[in-house]
Design a protein around this nucleic acid. Structure first.
Lengths: 345, 345
DNA sequence: CTGAAAGCGCTTACAG
DNA sequence: CTGAAAGCGCTTACAG
């Protein structure tokens, strides 16, 4: 490992100068800068990040808080991979890396110090590593913990959870509008008995989609019926069960808006199990546009979320908070209606 | 931020002793240890990881090399999320975190020093952060880069790429056996004209699955026919195209083993487009058991890989290399035949 | 524009 | 079992 000191000696300058070449190049004279740069390149010098973080009191890492909710064992994020890709590429262009924080929740930790520090784990880890910021991924029930982070003053951006704080913001899809679009699409096809399968009650995007559903009904001049609202948990099974309940009503719906593609697939399965044909007997619209949506039969009409957009928007908000001192407004990503076969459009 | 020095002063001991309490507790007398632990807990002390890494010359982080191959834009890992989950939880129990390395490949980097360091980026990042080890995720064409890492002496474990070195090993599924099982299943159902859709030529697991296919044929006393082997690239589209080619043969196969579920889905689509029914006119077996497999119609019979197993096996191998000095044998994860509807079994 | 010096917060031989 | 001291490799006021 070649160090700044070696470069300095070879160039006949001080380590301070070498450091400046990398951090405030403008403050170094042209010839000196070029000489240092050349030698550094030849020796393949790369500054030690630990030393740098130690003296700067700030690392070049962004923490990723991503916990699998223990209350929901089979939980999967609908598009984690796209999100990570977006995050990673947006952050890398500013020299930041992503630290996937592992906490004692993951397993009994034997890290020295962890057991001594706060039980939440993440807060402690965040301090230990002097992270530049945090990306918080909703896992279904971390709202309280997220609020604590938001208050801490550390730059934080949450995905799909509304947080606020001196340097906290969030990014989410325009769920209200997206859901309203779904209903408008169904109403436009002539449906008047439109039901919905909602997400979990304590989930904000779920609530927003339900609101958008009502907005959509109102915009189409349709009445909102309580018996057409069945709550689920975003999972396929709950879509299946919910759809069977809806189909058992005295006056069953002819169309359904599911707040997730997983539930929409469950609805498809329920229709099939009941002997109904989709889209002829029942029209279905989902939400997310996960890979599966285009593969089921019939292919699912759905409201697509801007998956990589989550990552890049999060990165941008974070960088803004790190570099300036403001907390940017929450980002509302536009959704897009993707028409396939499940509505017969 | 409370530091070791403050703890030391409050306890009337030296910082060296505080450090020992966390690193070699046995070397500190009972009463002293307890006092330090108590005070540390009360003040919520967490040791600065940068300082620690600097003096130890080793961080508590494992680098994750995961590049999207630029030659394959739409590339997605079939089960990245499960893999990360497995990795994260196995590593966290030993106090390691995962650093998702972002390189200049992700975007033009303006990190000071990066442009000076080696163009590969990852090698440089690895040094800068004094990583404890590396997990290498195949993205389709990094073989040469991986070999360089393997030679470097840093503990490395690659997923689905065979590497070797003083501290390098890899984990992969038992692809040969898995593929042979698939063929045995088809042969057991009476099929004698069994074709295969292979993965990319330069991909080791793909080659192994092709070998397993041949082994399976041999075991069933069936002849290997060159016109029954069509190469694809693991993607759905290539499965579609490949299947159409196979169905156009003078003597079309009655069954096909696809080296990935994505290609199997493509085959399903091709059969449908040709007016053939699955499984009646054509039996299909896939490989991976991705989520989609159970959702297509008919549901796909497939060879399941042990997804979280990849993560935990990688973590274990890595920890072994970090803690001892040996390079463990490559790990061969067993696969499992999951029978659904696409073979009519 | 440049250097000497202090400091970031730990760990680890080395003595005792 | 414990402490004093050196050291890890940078950055950053402070002088000049």
């Amino acid at each position: 490992m070649v160090t700044a000191r070696e470069i300095a000696e070879l160039c006949g300058v001080s380590v301070a100068t070498v450091s400046r070449v990398f951090n405030q190049p403008a403050s170094v004279s042209g010839p000196t800068r070029e000489r240092v740069e050349r030698v550094a390149r030849e020796l393949d010098f790369s500054p030690n990040e630990s030393a740098r973080a130690l003296s700067r009191k700030q690392s070049a890492m962004i923490g990723l808080v991503w916990d699998t909710d223990h209350r929901r064992p089979g939980w999967r994020h609908p598009f984690l991979q796209d999100l990570l890709l977006g995050l990673k590429s947006a952050l890398s262009s500013h020299g930041y890396h992503l630290l996937l924080l592992a906490t004692s929740d993951d397993a009994r930790s034997r890290t020295p110090g962890v057991s001594l520090a706060d039980p939440v784990g993440y807060v402690s880890m965040t301090r230990r590593h002097h992270l530049a910021g945090l990306v918080l991924i909703d896992s279904g029930s971390d709202a309280e913990a997220f609020t604590a982070f938001a208050r801490s003053g550390l730059p934080c951006v949450a995905l799909d959870v509304a947080i606020s704080g001196p340097k906290a913001t969030y990014v989410t899809s325009d769920n209200v509008r997206g859901a309203a679009d779904a209903v408008a699409h169904l109403a436009g096809l002539g449906h008047r008995r439109i039901a919905t399968l909602t997400g979990p009650r304590d989930n904000t995007p779920a609530a927003e989609r339900t609101r958008g559903y009502r907005d959509g009904l109102a915009a189409a001049g349709l009445e909102a019926r309580d018996d057409y609202v069945v709550s689920g948990d975003f999972y396929r099974e709950s879509g299946f069960v919910g759809m069977r309940r809806l189909l058992a009503r005295k006056e069953p719906p002819t169309a359904v808006f599911a707040a997730s593609d997983e539930m929409a697939v469950g609805a498809l399965l329920a229709a099939r199990a009941t002997g109904l044909r989709v889209p002829d007997d029942l029209a279905v619209v989902g939400f997310d546009d996960i890979e599966v949506a285009s593969l089921v039969d019939p292919a699912l009409t759905t409201i697509a979320q801007d998956k990589p957009g989550f990552g890049t928007a999060a990165a941008e908000a974070l960088l803004k908070m790190i570099e300036t001192d403001a907390a940017p407004e929450p980002v509302l990503l536009p959704t897009r209606l993707v028409v396939r076969d499940s509505c017969g459009a």
